[in-house]
């Protein structure tokens, strides 16, 4: 999957499943500070990533994600090796 495709799919996920405003979503946006995603929202995000991209994200890897760009990086790495 192309990075741009991952990016647009992830953006749709954040809008549709977490209810985040589309215009707030940028690669450097921090989930907790900029997008107001709390600890429960992070769990929800991970489930959405696993469901929609068919990847498995262990907790220790999940803990490394703090921005939208990092989430894209992780999914891209998982999908494309």
């Amino acid at each position: 999957m192309e990075r741009t495709e991952i990016e647009s799919k992830l953006t749709d996920l954040l809008v549709d499943e977490l209810g985040i405003e589309r215009e707030d979503i940028r690669a450097d946006a921090k989930f907790e500070e900029d997008l107001d995603v709390d600890s429960l929202g992070v769990v929800e995000l991970l489930m959405a990533l696993e469901d929609n991209f068919g990847v498995k994200i262990p907790d220790e890897e999940a803990e490394q994600i703090s921005t939208v760009g990092e989430a894209i990086d992780l999914v891209e790495k998982k999908l494309n090796g």
Binding site: L40, E44, M47
Partner: peptide, 9 residues
């Protein structure tokens, strides 16, 4: 593993 984090609340 698919239970919602918002289920209990």
């Amino acid at each position: 593993h698919r239970l919602s984090p918002f289920g209990i609340p």
